[in-house]
Design a protein around this nucleic acid. Structure first.
Ligand SMILES: Nc1ccn([C@H]2C[C@H](O)[C@@H](COP(=O)(O)OP(=O)(O)OP(=O)(O)O)O2)c(=O)n1
Ligand SMILES: [Mg+2]
Ligand SMILES: [Mg+2]
Length: 912
DNA sequence: ATCCTCCCCTAC
DNA sequence: TAAGGTAGGGGAGGAT
């Protein structure tokens, strides 16, 4: 029952003004209020100008609206492509490429046009404020073939048929993502784990001590760019702080960036393991030690009593006593992961800190950092939260709210040091500290927290020792990170007659012996279970989940702990009522796929049952090489930015050469300060809350030539049209399309795997029926796609626009507009859908129904599902009458009564 | 159906 | 102060 859509005929072009409930209320509230308002300025400078605001702008949409109305202009909440009252200009600060294509480029203007016109007291030439270049000649000057497909593409650059402003000004969303703060603490938002009783043996013979504390600004560099044409770099360095563009910025940054180091090491160990595959046989030297050690354990066990320290702390042991049985021909995967890796390495030379809460971080304790002018931590936190909540808006049918938890690093607001903690000891974790957390937040939780500096060289040596140790037992190893790997031990166990658990203990023993650092080991019949077992094993332990116990083991796992399920996915699943795997198992495959996509849905369906068919993969060919910096980026002008990009190109090129990598595509990524975000970031020289934009182009020939890269990158960057002063991050990525070795269904392409997909427990359910409906749907679409339409009926419009992406947005917002749909809205939508059917636009109609189905949850208010059911029925009836047959749709969640079943397989087409 | 681009998410 | 990188899976939506 929102506002009556009574008398307004003002947008009468459409004939669908019945759209009265939610949308109408919005219109009248937001727009019409000004009709009766002090806008006597019918003769203001914006006379005959009407704007639509797309995305976040500065000043914000609400303010622009005021400015327009008080100066004779009109503000449209939706883009109107035609009619007497068509929108004359689109106002935007950033437009994602995907949406750009749909706009008439000549109409997209920066908000400064409005503000500066007002300042000038007259209407300035909007062409001086175009967001996009008048033409797109930039692309054609690229020496590559990129333009052909990428840029303007197949369609005329002049006027693309449609226009679609993708959004409505209210909840931002429309503009691109950002995400700004740290990726999230590693452990994430779960809670504290157990505390550690860790620290076992103390026998450590530090090899690579780290007295080195005062790491000074190392000399030249580590992987210095290959000289070549070093950019002239006109150092405009005015600012005393170091930032991008300063002489040694890039090298210094990378030298101190932990994330850079762990990424680099990951690549290093991938390569290491890959090379090992072809190395001559070394006889697995570690195996002899394993056998000797195991024998010794047997003896000492005999003397004591039990066979092995099995049930001590391990639930890994199956009560059914099939312990050693598992050795048969079963697959056993081991997952090895160092305990609080960076901390453990640091503690080797700081025994006095053992048993205390310790963190590795750049922060040196000390006084609270002074507040910098322009910095506003609270505002930045708000901007971040606003951004994030905008993203999930419209989901869940207005019902199940419950915004997710905030990342742990925000704990207690943004106070104190913004230095991140790379790793913290288990004593610190007991207080709630997590990896990735800001020091300021951590100190609030744990005032006694001790800090130690990084020692990247030592991490590398320890990691290498760990890899060597495991690879001395088997080469069937997959590198996960510098402190973590998977090893397929099936063959090893078969050949050595050692129990899985004994092997795990030995691995831990050997790693400790070689490194002085504790590792934990998880064992399972597949990668998934091995990984989950490790979290049960930590710290400093081992845990085995045999195939026979997998089902029960999974039940109480949290979905958030499944690999691939992060904060966002966990929130989506929460909305579907699944926090545990037990609950997740109750969701139907089709429902998961509807909400999360076909592949993600399928994987979750399998993972929550303990099913994982991935094989340990020692070597997979690299598909991309990239270099990016999102810290310390503050450009004084275009020249500075260009110069830095050249530097980054050289860095990228150097990495490509080192990896013998030839690229056939290049992507430029830019982080731009989000409208509304403080200019000065909470974290010193950080990127703050940003929008991220990217643009990619193809290269004519696979190459690693610096000049080619530079030219392409410069063109792509120009095409992004970012103001240099607003840029907060820059990244370059080189990509290569691998020889298509039967892609499509099986996710993996050609890579060296270790074993055939281990069929875990549970009969591998065959899923033939899943896609049938969808496939059929496409058939319908094809049948109906008559490109040749003699005299087609007018393209239906809805809410004043014919632009489908705009309409999709409106519909999504509508779904989140309240506990139940307004009848007027539903009726208007029904009219529109019917018009689509009449116009033979079945795909768009079906698309809208699918979209709605995807956003609604079964547990939400049933009214929405019922409305969707009615809309679906309406469309189906009409399709049947007019075209014959039925649209094929994925099954809806049924609130109660089961009516939808008919849609399954058979009902598909029946087309005429 | 399949490809492509531009993201989004995840993990360390 | 602070050093917020990097690679890969995958989805949405459009083009073909
Ligand atoms: N947000 C993060 C997460 C991890 N790391 C680095 C430091 C860690 O020591 C190392 C390994 O990451 P893990 O996830 O394995 O975490 P830890 O080894 O520190 O602890 P755990 O015992 O949980 O494995 O990667 C980091 O710099 N920043
Ligand atoms: Mg670890
Ligand atoms: Mg790890």
């Amino acid at each position: 029952m929102a506002g009556r859509g009574c008398g307004k005929r003002r947008y009468g072009e459409t004939g669908f003004e019945a759209w009265g409930g939610y949308m109408e209320a919005k219109k009248s509230k937001l727009e019409n209020q000004f009709d009766n308002m002090p806008d006597k300025n019918k003769e203001g400078i914006f006379k005959n100008i009407s704007i639509f605001v797309n995305g976040l702008t500065e000043p914000p949409a609400a303010e622009l609206k005021q400015l327009m109305h008080h100066n004779g202009g009109t503000y449209h909440h939706y883009y109107r492509s035609r009619g007497e009252r068509a929108t004359t200009h689109i106002i935007a600060s950033n437009l994602p490429h995907a949406k750009l294509k749909q706009h008439q480029r000549k109409l997209v203007v920066r908000p400064e046009w409005i503000t500066e016109s007002l300042s000038a007291g007259r209407l300035l030439d909007y062409r001086q404020y175009l967001l996009l270049p008048p033409e797109n000649p930039l692309l054609s000057c690229m020496g590559s073939a990129s333009t052909s497909k990428a840029g303007g593409g197949a369609h005329a650059p002049s006027e693309v048929a449609e226009i679609g402003a993708g959004a409505e000004p209210d909840y931002d969303d429309d503009d691109e993502e950002c995400e700004s703060f740290p990726p999230d603490s590693s452990s994430d938002d779960d809670e504290v784990d157990q505390e550690g009783d860790p620290e076992p043996i103390a026998d450590n013979d530090d090899e690579c001590d780290d007295s080195a504390e005062a790491t000074e600004t190392a000399g030249p560099s580590t992987a210095a760019p290959s000289a070549a044409s070093s950019a002239p770099a006109p150092p405009t360095d005015r600012s005393p702080v170091k930032r991008a563009g300063q002489p040694n910025f890039l090298q210094e940054f990378y030298q101190k960036s932990r994330l850079h180091h762990i990424s680099e090491m990951k690549a290093l160990f991938r390569d290491y393991v890959a090379r090992l595959q072809d190395a001559p046989d070394d006889g697995y030297p570690e195996r002899a030690r394993l056998l000797a050690w195991s024998r010794q354990r047997d003896q000492s066990a005999d003397q004591t009593s039990e066979r092995d320290g099995d049930d001590e702390e391990d639930m890994e042991r199956e009560p059914a006593g099939e312990d050693s049985l598992t050795t048969g021909d079963a697959t056993v995967i081991a997952h090895v992961d160092m305990d609080c890796f960076f901390v453990s390495v640091g503690l080797r030379s700081r025994p006095e800190l053992r048993g205390r809460p310790v963190a590795v971080t750049h922060s040196r304790g000390g006084a609270e950092p002074a507040v910098r002018p322009g910095e506003d931590r609270a505002a930045e936190a708000d901007a971040y939260r606003a951004r994030r909540s905008g993203k999930s808006a419209g989901e869940g049918g207005g019902g199940s709210g419950a915004g997710g938890k905030e990342p742990s690093w925000m704990a207690g607001g943004l106070h104190g040091s913004m230095a991140e903690i790379a790793s913290c000891s288990y004593e610190a974790r007991a207080a709630g500290v997590k990896n990735g957390m800001f020091m300021g937040a951590a100190l609030k939780l744990c005032p006694d927290l001790q800090t130690i500096p990084y020692d990247f060289a030592a991490y590398r040596e320890v990691a290498l020792a760990m890899y060597d140790t495991v690879c001395g037992l088997t080469r069937r190893v997959q590198a996960v990170s510098c402190d973590e790997l998977f090893a397929d031990c099936s063959e090893l166990l078969r050949q050595t007659d050692v129990s899985p658990l004994r092997l795990a203990e030995y691995i831990r023993h050997a790693v400790r012996r070689e490194t002085g650092c504790p590792a934990s080991v998880g064992l399972g019949p597949n990668i998934l279970l091995a990984r989950l077992a490790t979290s049960r094993a930590k710290p400093d332990g081992q845990f085995h989940v045999p195939a026979g116990r997998a089902a029960e083991f999974m039940l109480d796992q949290r979905v958030r702990d499944l690999p691939g399920v992060g904060r966002t996915t966990a929130e989506q699943l929460h909305r579907l009522g699944a926090d545990s795997c037990r609950q997740l198992q109750r969701l139907e495959l089709a429902q998961l796929q509807r909400h999360l996509g076909p592949r993600t849905g399928r994987q979750l369906h399998e993972f929550c049952r303990g099913i994982d068919t991935r094989a340990v993969t020692p070597h997979a060919p690299r598909r991309s090489v990239s270099a990016e910096v999102n810290y310390g980026i503050r450009f004084g002008g275009a020249a500075e930015m260009a110069s830095f990009v050249n530097e980054l190109c050289a860095e990228l090129q150097s990495r490509m050469t080192a990896a013998a990598f030839l690229a056939d595509s290049v992507t430029v990524k830019v982080m731009v300060r989000a409208a509304g975000a403080p200019t000065e970031t909470a974290k010193f020289m950080g990127h703050g809350v940003c929008d991220t934009l990217s643009r990619s182009g193809r290269l004519a020939t696979p190459t690693d030539r610096l000049e080619t890269l530079r030219r392409e990158v410069a063109a792509l960057l120009a095409a992004l049209h970012v103001a240099p002063s607003e840029v907060r991050g820059l990244g370059l990525q080189a990509g290569r399309t691998l020889a298509t070795a039967a892609r499509g269904k099986p996710p993996a392409a050609a890579s060296v795997t270790t074993a055939p997909p281990p069929p875990p427990q549970q009969p591998a359910q065959t899923s033939a029926v899943v896609y049938s409906a969808e496939e059929a749907a496409r058939l319908v679409g094809g049948v109906d796609r008559p490109v040749e339409r003699p005299s087609l009926p007018p393209v239906p419009t809805f809410c004043g626009t014919a632009d489908l992406s705009c309409i999709r947005r409106l519909v999504v917002e509508w779904l989140g507009s309240g506990p139940h749909p307004e009848r007027e809205d539903e009726a208007a939508l029904a009219v529109y859908l019917s018009a689509l059917v009449d116009a033979r636009l079945l795909e768009p109609a079906r698309g809208l129904l699918v979209l709605m189905g995807r956003r609604l949850t079964a547990d939400g208010p049933p009214q929405w599902l019922e409305a969707l059911q009615r809309l679906t029925d309406t469309v189906q009836r009409r399709v049947g009458v007019i075209h014959g047959g039925t649209l094929s749709l994925p099954p809806l969640p049924r609130p109660r009564a089961n009516v939808t079943t008919a849609t399954s397989a058979a009902a598909a087409v029946t087309a005429i």
